[in-house]
Structure formats: structure tokens, C-alpha cells
Amino acid sequence: MSDNNGFKSGSNLERVLRAGHFAVTCECGPPKGADVEHLEKKINLVKGCVDAANVTDNQTAVVRMSSIGASAILVRNGVEPVMQMVTRDRNRIAAQSDIFGASALGIRNMLCLTGDHQTFGNHPMAKNVFDLDSIQLLDMVRIIRDEGKVNSGDPVEGGIKMFLGAAANPFADPFEFRVIRLAKKISAGADFVQTQCIYDMDRFRQFMKMACDMGLDKKCFILAGLTPLKSAGMAAYMNKNVAGISIPDSVIQRIRGAQKGKQAEEGIRFLIEQIQEVKEIPGIAGVHIMAIEWEDRVREIAERAGLLPRPAIEA
């Protein structure tokens, strides 16, 4: 049920990727309330630097403005959103209804996730839902989009246009299963994939090799996830405490080795080198820069990495 010219949703991101450009996405976290002004400030910081910006869905299970609401504000402000949706908080009824609403509000990209467990957030006492997992969510949205049927099989009134994304974590365990899981996501409906932030480039290359061997890079666009390190302390903390992220010692040493007050700069320099590196990896279609609470440096990063200006492709 895609456009005549084979587009799934015809979103900017999809068009950039289809055109064979090296895509750039970033993250734009909604506020912990209804502070639109704050959100718009962030939007303006990234505007023109990226092809689309991910809007997180109550990231780390901390309550924030809904990703649909925030995504609509992005649309209003001329930045294309990738609306994230987790299955933690909504069953299939709520999920489908939200997707209809999102589509109606002009949202054309969505990233299907399971979501962080609520024990990590500010409401550990909450009951979770997990009626679906991320793969089942992808599957469900794909069927709505491509077959015009909701999960129960009932027909959809008026189709949706949605470029479907999934996350992949090449660094979690069991390692061999990670590619299988990526393949599952693709067959469930993922059009593009953003990876967890990469620090261990060797392991990532290995992952990509396995993915390419299975032909997955031909079936979907793989964006390498990168997060600039603000300091050696942050690096060490993430390495130790965030499951599924591993930062090699050499990287932490490198940041730590920088002059006083220059660790952030070293982090950005490292990131830019990484962007160049991933560009060379076969099967990589773009980068997803997760500059957490560092939106003000996204422009500089894109600039220095030679990613600007972003291509404008006619619909």
C-alpha cells in the first residue's frame, strides 16, 4: 500500500536513504512536562543538520511528554521526527490507536522498541504491559500499513504511511543471536535500523560482516549509532552501568589522556573519526548521533564531519 514509486511512507529519511545518500539522524528528547518552548529550542538546534530526529518514548522509563505529542511539534517546526514507540506502556489496542493518531498528525517515521524496564525509571512501582514485543509491534504496524488490517484482522479505514525502524544492539548477548534478531526484525517489517551506540568498532565490524553475509544490508538501511563522550568519567560510568554498552579501555584512556578541560573536545574528535570509520564499513547507510542533552553540539559535529549541507530531495 505504499506510494506508486515504491515508497513506504515517502518521508524525508526514506527519500534520502533511497537516493543513496549517507543519512544522518539525531535524538531529540521531549521535556519532563509540557514545556513546548524548551522543546522548540532543541528543535531549532538540530534543524537543517539531520534528515530526521528521533523522539524518544519515555526514555529509561522516566515520564516525559508523549512521543506522539512531541513528534507533532517537530512536524510543526519543520524537522522530521522518527517517533519512537515502546511496548512497555501500551497494549496492542493503545498502540494501534496511537499509530493511527500519529499518522494523522503527519508523522511518517516510527521506531518500534520494547522499551527500558520500568525499574530503571521514576515509576518502578508501575505495572508494565508488554502485550507485544518490539518485533510483534513491527509486524503489526507493517500489516496495518501493507495489508490494511489491524491485529485482530479487522480492516483499517484509510491507510497509514509509516517508514518503520527498529533498534539493533550488536553489543548485547548472546552475540551470535544479535544478527538473527536483526533478521527477524527486518522480516517483521523494519525498513531501517539504528544501532546502539558503538564504541567497540571491531565487534561492530564483525556484526556488520555477519549481517551483510546474510544480505540484511540489502533488505534494510542500517544506521550506525554513535554517542559523543563528554568525559572519561561518563565513559567509565556507561561502560560499567549501562547494560549492552561496552566501551573499550583504550577509548576511555584516550579521553582521560586529554588536557584538562579538553575531554569534551576529545570526545567530539573521537566521534568525528568514528563517523569517518563507519562510512567505510560495507552495509552502513548512515549515522544516528545520540548527543544526549548535547543538542547544541550536533550542528558542529555534522559540520566537522562533512555531513552538511543535508540533501534536499523532492517528494
Binding site: R88, T114, G115, D116, H117, T119, F120, N128, F130, D133, S134, I135, Q136, A167, N169, F171, A172, D173, P174, F177, I180, R181, K184, Q196, A243, G244
Partner: peptide, 22 residues
């Protein structure tokens, strides 16, 4: 599974342990 996932582990699986209580 802490998230009742039916199609494989989430990204929080590390060294055989669940991120919810490693």
C-alpha cells in the same frame, strides 16, 4: 523474562544476566 519477550532478548542481556537484576 522481565519483559515477557517472545522473540529474543532485548539489549539488556549481558553475560547471561538480565539488566533488571544482573
Amino acid at each position: 523474562c522481565s519483559k515477557h519477550l517472545l522473540n529474543g532478548p532485548c539489549g539488556g542481556s549481558e553475560k547471561g544476566r538480565c539488566e533488571v537484576a544482573p
